[in-house]
Structures are given as structure tokens and as C-alpha cells.
């Protein structure tokens, strides 16, 4: 498939926003349960939610560049019964709304006890909203992943690993950003975020490698024989019926050289996993927020390469019909 930058930015940016929100919610839950020291900076969660919203909003904006007719975009919410794309179109703004409310509750300091006045748990309402947000956030990862995983003849994508990768890689980048953010404004959460960022990044390495191994062994179900229905071992296309290219030759081929294709795989494997892990470790040990910020930037750039490779690697059966001019 041809990697479209609009979709690359949509999925990576919204992944960061989702992961960052999950990190904020994790931080608040740990603090409420007394597992980490409660935050001294009252604006930490508010500003954090705002940053998450910025990423989500940027992702949403990028998605509009993918549409031929963005002015009709609202129609995309109508087929949620059958279409994962439609579900994502509903869940993304819903998630943004919950993140907004979460940030607003923290900003207003409006946190009545909803379980019971004598319950020692602090910030019950925002925790409840946060839990709701975390559920919607997971649903959003599932929607995004399923958009690709549900197309059964794109065999590289048709696997539960696709959903797991979207979940783990998005969450990892958000936690890495949260680590850098905490290093600057909430040192009590630094270790929590940093350790989780490392664990999730490592889990992402395992699941992404698993999908790379799986994809290297794929046996394609469609062949030129089934494509034109001629049972002969040797078939070669002599004309695709057009000479100057068409939508079919532009949308379904990545067009990069084999060398570039292979190098992008190694680039993302290095940038998404070992380099951020090393930077996280160094930044936490040296208490250097700049290193942690670098960890996030490197990981995000790596994820752009990862997403490019994710699209480029998928081999559409229609390509069988477009082999020669």
C-alpha cells in the first residue's frame, strides 16, 4: 500500500495523546491509592490533559487531509454498525471530550466524593471520569487497529497483532512523553512513568517483532491464477490496459526502492525501541529532562517510520493485475 502521511500522522499523533492520557490516569490512580506521593503541582493534570488534547486534535486535523471531501466528513459517523472507520470517527471525538472534562475537573478542582463522604479516596469524580476515559481510549485503539486488521485479504494486517501493536506503540510513546513531562513538573511520578514507559516499549518490541516474523512467512492466498482464473503455471502480464498510471498504480504500491524499504524497517526498529529505552534509562538516572524529551522525540520519529513501513509492507491482491505497463 502507498503510505499516506495524513494517516501516518493521524495514527501516531493520536497514539501519543491516548498514551499520555493513560499515563495521567495511571499517575492519579497510583497517587489516590497511596502508591506514590501525591502531586504538589495542582496544574499537572490540567496541563497534561491539554497536551494530550493538542496531540489528539492534531491527529484529527491530519485525518481531514486524507479525505477528498472533508466538508462531508460528518457523514462518516453514520455506519458504526458495520464500519470500524465509522466507529473510530465517533470514538475519537468522544475520547477528546472525556479528556477535556478530565482536565477541566482538575482545573476547577471540582472533585466531590461520589462513592461516599467518609471514603478516604481522593478525587473520586475525576478518577471516575478518568476510568471512563481509559475505557474509551482502549476502544479507540481497538477501532484504529481493526480498521486495518478487518480487511482479510490484506494478509499482513489481518491479525490480532495489528491491534496489539497500535495499542502498545501508542501507549509507549505517550508514557515516554509523560516521563519527560513529569521530570519537569512532577518528579514524584517520574519513576512510575519511566518504568511503565520502558515496560510498554519492551512489550511493543516483542509484539512488533512477532508481526514482522509473521509477515515474513505469509503465504499469499491470491495468485495470478486465481486472479484471472486461468489454470496454468506460467502466466505473465503483457499489458495492464493503461500507460500513464492510474489510481490503482498510485494507491497500492509504495514506490520506494527495495533498499529504502529494508532500511526503514531497521531505522524504526532502532529508533522506536533501543534508543528510547537507553535514553529513558540515562535520563532517569541522571535526572536530565532533556534526555527524556529526546527519548520521546526519537521514539515519535521512529513511529513515523514504523507506520510508513506498516503501510508499505501490506501487499494488496489487486497488485496482481498491475504488474506491467
Amino acid at each position: 500500500m502507498h503510505p499516506a502521511f495524513s494517516v501516518i500522522f493521524l495514527t501516531t499523533l493520536s497514539g501519543v495523546g491516548q498514551g499520555l492520557f493513560l499515563a495521567l490516569f495511571t499517575g492519579q490512580s497510583y497517587a489516590a491509592l497511596g502508591l506514590v506521593r501525591v502531586n504538589d503541582s495542582p496544574t499537572f493534570y490540567t496541563v497534561g490533559s491539554f497536551i494530550a488534547l493538542l496531540f489528539l486534535g492534531a491527529g484529527l486535523a491530519a485525518s481531514f487531509f486524507h479525505l477528498g471531501r472533508p466538508e462531508r466528513g460528518w457523514r462518516a459517523a453514520s455506519q458504526w454498525r458495520t464500519s470500524w472507520l465509522s466507529r473510530e470517527v465517533i470514538v475519537l471525538p468522544a475520547f477528546m471530550a472525556v479528556v477535556f472534562v478530565f482536565g477541566l475537573l482538575h482545573y476547577m478542582g471540582w472533585d466531590p466524593n461520589i462513592i461516599g463522604a467518609d471514603n478516604p479516596l481522593q478525587g473520586q469524580l475525576s478518577l471516575f471520569v478518568g476510568m471512563l476515559g481509559a475505557l474509551i481510549c482502549l476502544a479507540l485503539f481497538v477501532c484504529t487497529g481493526m480498521i486495518y486488521a478487518c480487511i482479510r485479504f490484506l494478509q499482513e494486517w489481518h491479525s490480532s497483532l495489528t491491534v496489539v501493536n497500535y495499542l502498545l506503540l501508542g501507549t509507549a510513546s505517550g508514557f515516554t512523553l509523560a516521563t519527560a513531562y513529569a521530570a519537569l513538573y512532577a518528579p514524584n511520578l517520574l519513576t512510575l512513568f519511566g518504568v511503565w514507559a520502558a515496560i510498554i516499549t519492551f512489550a511493543g518490541l516483542i509484539s512488533r517483532s512477532a508481526s514482522l516474523i509473521r509477515n515474513a512467512r505469509i503465504k499469499y492466498k491470491s495468485t495470478l491464477q486465481t486472479a484471472i482464473g486461468v489454470r496454468h503455471a506460467t502466466i505473465a502480464q503483457s499489458s495492464q490496459g493503461l500507460m500513464g498510471g492510474s489510481f490503482n498504480t498510485r494507491e497500492f504500491f509504495h514506490g520506494a526502492s527495495q533498499l529504502m524499504f529494508k532500511s526503514i524497517k531497521w531505522i524504526f526498529l532502532v529508533l522506536v525501541f533501543p534508543v528510547p529505552l537507553a535514553l529513558l534509562w540515562a535520563g532517569m538516572n541522571l535526572h536530565a529532562p532533556a534526555l527524556l524529551l529526546a527519548a520521546f522525540v526519537v521514539q515519535y520519529l521512529g513511529l513515523i517510520a514504523e507506520r510508513w513501513f506498516f503501510f508499505a509492507q501490506a501487499n494488496h491482491p489487486q497488485n496482481l493485475y498491475y504488474q506491467t505497463i
Binding site: 471531501r69 472533508p70 472507520l85 485479504f153 494488496h316 489487486q318
Partner: peptide, 26 residues
């Protein structure tokens, strides 16, 4: 009149017979 030109259906057709109109964007 309803199509937003997201191209998702063309990904979901194994035969490559859907083509986006590059000017009408549907």
C-alpha cells in the same frame, strides 16, 4: 453525493476496480 473520498472501500475490494476521481474527489 455522500462519498467523502476516504478510499477505504478501494482497499477493501480485492479486485482493484474502484478508482478515485482525482478531480471530483469521490
Amino acid at each position: 453525493d455522500k462519498c467523502i473520498g476516504c478510499k477505504y472501500c478501494s482497499w477493501a475490494c480485492p479486485y482493484g476496480v474502484r478508482e478515485v476521481d482525482e478531480h471530483l474527489k469521490v
